[in-house]
């Protein structure tokens, strides 16, 4: 698996798209810091971008890479390697190269602007960790879709739909149900609904590290209690791990029956 990972990673690290992605984040980092010159303020703006863009890019890269390397995958399948190792190697390769683009692209400008002397270093670190998680989660989800869909166009469609679902529609339904049931205590419901969407979970996880967390206390004691403690932080991270792990399980299960 490590060998496949290595070559997929090499392949992607040399791809034009990795550079475009890396360049985009680099530019974004510099522009943000140039515009307000305040590391901690830039972190908030960055959050908005990371929460939306990382999943989208992860999804598109995931499906694209799977379909584009289909023939090569077949060549690899004829080698004495387990098929799950091949796919998992590719998966880790894609996720890792995307994460590297993210971390370096944003890290370089922030380090140059004196991140290490800023109080925002923890927030920024968390932002990158969450960004990395989102990469791994959404590449895994898109690989699942690609593995289950022979047709490339359909696969792309489903993947984009999945992103749209988690990034926008889910929150819309969430909001509607909050409004519909607003006579009932909604604390626990909101908490659960947040856990079931990795984008929402990441957003809340970052928000809670910012001053604004006090504002969330406004919504109710359960939320404050849960997210205000290190227990909440740890369990949120654990749920993010689950969000990587479950799609990987399904991937394995699917691979056992999959015809190439």
């Amino acid at each position: 698996m490590l060998k496949i990972l290595k070559y997929s990673f090499y392949d992607l690290m040399r791809s034009r798209w990795s550079y475009v992605y890396f360049g985009f984040y680099l530019l974004l980092g510099f522009v943000l810091l140039f515009l307000n010159n305040d590391v901690s303020k830039a972190v908030i703006t960055l959050m908005n971008i990371i929460i939306v863009l990382t999943p989208l890019i992860g999804t598109i890269f995931g499906v694209m890479y799977y379909y584009n390397s289909k023939e090569f995958t077949e060549l690899l399948l004829a080698q004495p390697i387990q098929r799950s190792h091949i796919i998992r190697g590719q998966y880790v390769g894609v996720s890792l190269s995307l994460t590297l683009s993210l971390v370096l692209g944003l890290g370089i400008p922030f380090v140059l602007y004196g991140l290490f002397m800023s109080a925002a270093i923890f927030d920024f670190g968390l932002l990158l960790v969450v960004g990395a998680f989102l990469n791994f989660i959404f590449v895994a989800l898109s690989y699942n879709i690609a593995l289950s869909t022979e047709n490339k166009i359909k696969g792309f469609g489903y993947a984009i739909l999945m992103w749209l679902m988690l990034a926008v529609i889910y929150d819309g339904l969430f909001m509607i149900s909050l409004l519909l049931f607003n006579e009932y205590p909604l604390d626990t419901f909101s908490l659960a609904a947040t856990m079931f969407n990795p984008i929402d979970l990441s957003r809340i996880l970052i928000l809670l590290q910012l001053d604004i967390s006090a504002l969330l206390g406004y919504t109710g004691a359960v939320f404050k209690k849960f997210f205000g403690t290190s227990f909440g932080m740890l369990s949120s991270l654990l749920v993010l791990v689950l969000w990587v792990w479950l799609p990987l399980l399904r991937m394995n299960w699917k691979l056992k029956k999959k015809d190439f």
């Binding site: 070559y7 289909k70 023939e71 090569f72 077949e74 060549l75 004829a78 004495p80 390697i81 098929r83």
Partner: peptide
């Protein structure tokens, strides 16, 4: 999967990682 070490396969369409 180990048995595949004892066979060589030439696939129909050769499409390799472009980079």
């Amino acid at each position: 999967h180990q048995y595949r070490n004892h066979l060589n396969y030439l696939p129909q369409i050769a499409n390799f990682p472009p980079n």
